[in-house]
Write a protein that binds this DNA or RNA. Structure first.
Lengths: 197, 197
DNA sequence: GTGACGAGTGGCAGAGCCTGACAGATTGCA
DNA sequence: TGCAATCTGTCAGGCTCTGCCACTCGTCAC
């Protein structure tokens, strides 16, 4: 049996406690109105320990980013080898959109915090940019992007992740009431058909 | 005649000195290897004064961003009213590309600094994201985007600025030897025609 | 020319983020 | 129980950035 030791369970518990503590306080007092000391203090942990779990105060807000990125990459890698790159990527981002919808509250909360804090908006952009690089690397690794010129490959990936971002923004602005996957699918179709005007 | 007083001339001089001092030292010792004290000290100015010119250490690296954004917006606003939004935007980003080419050395230097400093990559992304909002606002203001659904409008703008980013990245990776405008034009054509595969 | 006004500056103090180093506590295992 | 690895707290310190106050120096009116 895969017993995880007490140590690891404790660690995961602290990690989750820090994330919850941070989210709660950010929502109440704004990102800049909360110090690392506040976050750590609410968990009976020293600020130094906080930084052993998260590289920065911003990181705790995007703690699940790695998991989402991993999911994206998994779905991408799981596509049949003969599926063309853009179609494979389409499936992957639609999967991420489904993730977002299933974590609706958390995503909405985070986006509200981000919107209210100019210095954070760049972080979201960075995340998507980071995904971009990873996706390109994966497409290259799997040989899927072999026949495409460099510019086309990069542009396709960048445009697709951009579609995910734009669709998500609209969805969030509508308080997550709309159908994110439908929105994203529509955006992807637009990209496939071509922008006119 | 528009004589600018000694005071203002001095101010502009300090500003330029700070920018040059920063660029030079960043190039030599890396962004994080240089402190604000270093930058200011090299100009015989106190750190406190540095922050009166630039909101942050990062800002000094993107000092010309405002001018470029203004140029982009000017070209956009100067398009004939009957030019459709995407075509107007195309003209504007091509103009920015021309700017980049004319400031080749400075752009290349900056991108190298950014590439070498993970924490800065988000800033570039943020800049483009910021342009996006401004462009959308302008298109809305001029009534150019009137007939388009929200999603299409935003996606078109986002995809176009993304094309600028991707083309610029490729251009920089090739040490600015290629033809940035041609690269961008090709990317824009791809977006217009539609992504296939 | 002289003096008043205001913009620009420097220095100081301080909050907050983040890191390295060391010592103590806790867990896992023999 | 005792050892080794891991996790934590404390301390010291550097850096970014801000508010505050006094000072200097252009600018402008008289």
């Amino acid at each position: 049996m895969a017993t995880v030791g007490l140590r690891e369970r404790k660690k995961e518990k602290t990690r989750q406690a820090l994330i919850r503590s941070a989210s709660r306080q950010f929502a109440k007092k704004g990102f800049e109105g909360v110090t690392v000391e506040d976050i750590a203090g609410a968990c009976d942990v020293s600020p130094r320990t906080f930084f052993r779990y998260f590289g920065s105060k911003e990181d705790v807000l995007f703690a699940d980013a790695d998991a989402q990125r991993a999911h994206l990459m998994d779905v991408l890698a799981a596509q049949a080898p003969d599926v063309p790159p853009i179609r494979a990527l389409r499936a992957a981002v639609l999967e991420v959109a489904a993730d977002y919808e299933s974590q609706r509250e958390a995503i909405l909360l985070r986006h509200r915090i981000v919107m209210a804090t100019p210095s954070l908006t760049s972080r979201v952009a960075e995340r998507h940019h980071c995904w971009e690089s990873a996706v390109i690397a994966e497409l290259r690794r799997s040989g899927r992007g072999a026949g495409m010129p460099e510019l086309t490959l990069r542009l396709s990936v960048a445009a697709t992740t951009t579609a995910l971002r734009v669709a998500t923004e609209l969805w969030v602005e509508g308080d997550g009431e709309g159908d994110l996957r439908a929105l994203l699918a529509s955006a992807l179709d637009t990209l496939r058909t071509g922008l006119d005007g």
